[in-house]
Design a protein around this nucleic acid. Structure first.
Lengths: 238, 238
DNA sequence: CCGTTCAATATGTCTATACAATAATGCCGG
DNA sequence: CCGGCATTATTGTATAGACATATTGAACGG
């Protein structure tokens, strides 16, 4: 009883979703057919249809013609992982963000570059190495490759005030990405840059990004293991 | 051109989504109003409304009364992280899965236990420690706490054939969860169990699970850093 | 110049109806 | 008992119309 009358739509939706999420209707349970819901709520079929279609789009239920609608099977555990912009992330900690550019070069892409970017990589790349600080300590080392065929503007862009990741986000409209997260020991070079002991545990996030099937960028962010963690949240319903 | 005529619904949907994902309509761009789309496709308003409502539910567009519909702003980078069942994960590698139970005890929950489970933890818990093998090498150490008030059946459950995570998934209908991923060095005890050198980098995934606001379980999975990584995928549209 | 009021506009929700597509069910003949 | 065919229940898609609701932009008045 929230007092605020929601739309009929929402009322039906939350009642059904509630029963599923509470476990009252377990996976595989058959949901009343549209005609029954229609009668139960005294509304038209379109209304319940819209609700059920939305629940199906979310994956909460499955619908089969002639058979009925059923509570969805438990999906494999998955979570939404926030991979925020480095600058925003550091500022969210209340620390000043600062960035060094360690190296920057434009070159013909080597075989290794093309392997890193994946199928369809262009002939020229921009290679960038940056160091991000959160206050005094190093927050991450960024090792990035940008395909200049996919993002020609990158060649002349200044990356001194904006992290390359954020710059790309606002210049490449939409993307598909793959992330790989691993724990690795710091080698000597990395240890020096990060300010940790050689062999210290580091969290390494590799991300490859595509736009309409063509590689855009490949980046490896390496964080010192102490004092850094990724957080993911999972909520099946909404 | 698939040749197969999709529903009008799908046609409109994919045309709009295509323009957004290709970048033709950048974030913030105003989408034709329903009346215009209606005229463009020669269909009724309900049809375009359904399409736009679905796109809005997905987050691809934003709608404001009187103002119109707009291509959504770039969302903060986020990805769907698959956190599969350990057994399935090992078997997907083509390796035989095996599990040791290192310790199992039922106890009154200590302050530390309640802190680990979070607000609302019950008075009794089941503590479990397991070791998962992928072939001969150790794949992970599982250190789990189950709230017996939330899952009383767990007290008598045998966990010899099924990993506790999978057992819970099929006994606790739905969940909300929080994950924290970090790189940590192995301490001596952990190094012995995992079969790695003390100080070696390990990937540590902490997960806390709730059901309707009450804690269910808290688990820490620690993987040897070499030869293990989490993979996440990201696709804004579908 | 600023705040208030108001109407126009675009979305939000709902109805009643219609026909299409699909697949489970049952019937019938062999 | 079983294969094939017709039946029919259920969802899928679409239409035309109606009224509700929020919010912008403009007109108006102090």
């Amino acid at each position: 009883m929230s007092g605020q009358s929601a739309s009929l739509n929402e009322t039906i939706r939350s009642e059904i979703a509630g029963r599923i999420l509470s476990g009252e209707w377990p996976p595989g349970h058959r949901i009343p057919i549209e005609l029954e819901l229609m009668a139960a709520y005294g509304c038209s079929r379109m209304t319940v249809n819209k609700v059920l279609a939305a629940l199906a789009a979310e994956g909460l239920i499955e619908r089969r013609r002639r058979a009925g609608s059923f509570v969805g099977r438990q999906r494999s555990q998955s979570a939404v992982l926030d991979i925020p912009d480095v600058r925003a992330e550091v500022k969210a900690l209340g620390l000043p963000w600062r960035m060094d550019i360690l190296a920057r070069s434009v070159r013909r892409s080597t075989a290794a570059d093309r392997a890193r970017l994946g199928e369809g990589a262009g002939p020229r790349v921009l290679a960038l190495a940056c160091r991000h600080f959160a206050g005094a300590p190093v927050h991450a080392i960024e090792d990035r490759l940008i395909d200049l065929e996919a993002v020609p503007e990158a060649e002349t862009a200044e990356f001194d005030a904006v992290p390359p990741g954020a710059w790309l986000l606002s210049h490449v409209p939409w993307s598909q990405a793959e992330h790989r997260i691993a724990a690795v020991p710091a080698d000597d070079a990395l240890a020096g840059l990060l300010g940790v002991q050689p062999g210290a545990a580091c969290l390494q996030v590799d991300r490859r990004t595509w736009r309409s099937g063509r590689p855009v960028t490949a980046v490896r962010m390496t964080h010192p293991g102490d004092g850094y963690s990724l957080v993911a949240r999972f909520a099946p319903g909404a």
